[in-house]
Amino acid sequence: MEPVRLSKRMAELGLCSRREADEYIARGWVTVDGVVVDVLGSKVLPEQKIELRRQAQRAQSQRVTVLLNKPVGYVSGQAEQGYQPAVVLIRPENHWAGDASGIRFAREHLGNLAPAGRLDIDSVGLLVLTQDGRVAKALIGEESGVEKEYLVRVSGRLGPEGLALLNHGLSLDGQPLKPAKVQWQNADQLRFVLQEGKKRQIRRMCELVGLRVTGLKRIRIGRIALGDLPQGKWRYLGADERF
């Protein structure tokens, strides 16, 4: 088999992101078959054993992931059209008193804190921001299959055929969507469970079957539920929690 870049292989193995891999390699924190490799661009064979040294493991353990109950009016990523990014809400005064992680807020937790997935400006609920490339890859990497669950308030009429299409059979941007799990939660609210996250996907899916979304709330990502986290508040992902 052909050799591949060490940083790419590290990301494929879920050791870290490619950006983090380059940092660890440059610092001499990576071994291949027990030998330190500190040259960027180095290549390895798929069967070679890649390990992080203690310094890299320590650096990873200090990276945090934050769970925010995003309100309406904030964008997930970069500021746009006068709207603020959700990361501005990660302040000590918004830290949820019910956070059981045991992690104390530190200013360095705000460095390189980026959203792992989008939640549009009109939507509310669970938004993940992380410093950890492993978390980002798990949630938004090309091979991610982590479920995301939403409660979606709608207006309009939806027959059995439309509900069947929401579950499987729709396409967006010329690409067929993965099967979803969509069912009625109550008279005007649907529950969606998706394994992908195209831009404004649920709103566009609903439009295709004659519905208009009047409210959208994300309540779960993988095994992590929004739970009792109040709107506008945030907490840390605990060491024992996994998506």
Rank of each mutant, 00 (worst) to 15 (best):
V39Y: 08
L40M: 12
G41H: 09
G41F: 09
G41I: 08
S42H: 11
K43S: 13
V44W: 10
P46N: 12
P46V: 11
E47V: 10
E47Y: 12
E47K: 13
E47F: 12
E47G: 10
Q48A: 08
K49V: 15
K49N: 13
I50P: 06
I50Q: 04
I50R: 05
E51C: 11
L52Y: 09
L52P: 09
R54M: 04
R54F: 00
R54G: 01
Q55R: 14
Q57T: 04
Q57H: 01
R58P: 00
R58Q: 12
Q60L: 15
Q60K: 09
Q60E: 05
Q60G: 02
S61L: 05
R63Y: 03
V64Q: 09
V64D: 00
V64M: 06
T65H: 03
T65P: 01
T65V: 03
V66H: 01
V66G: 01
L67S: 06
L67A: 08
L68N: 05
N69D: 06
N69A: 08
K70T: 02
K70D: 01
K70V: 01
V72E: 14
G73S: 13
G73W: 11
G73T: 11
Y74I: 01
V75C: 07
V75D: 01
V75Y: 00
S76Y: 08
S76D: 05
G77Q: 12
G77R: 07
G77E: 09
Q78M: 08
Q78W: 01
A79T: 03
A79D: 04
E80T: 15
E80Y: 08
Q81W: 10
Q81L: 14
G82I: 09
Y83M: 12
Q84R: 14
Q84S: 13
Q84T: 02
P85K: 06
P85D: 02
A86C: 13
A86S: 14
V87E: 08
V87Q: 09
V88E: 11
L89T: 05
L89F: 05
L89I: 06
I90T: 07
I90H: 04
I90W: 03
R91C: 01
P92L: 10
E93S: 13
E93A: 13
E93Y: 08
N94W: 06
N94E: 05
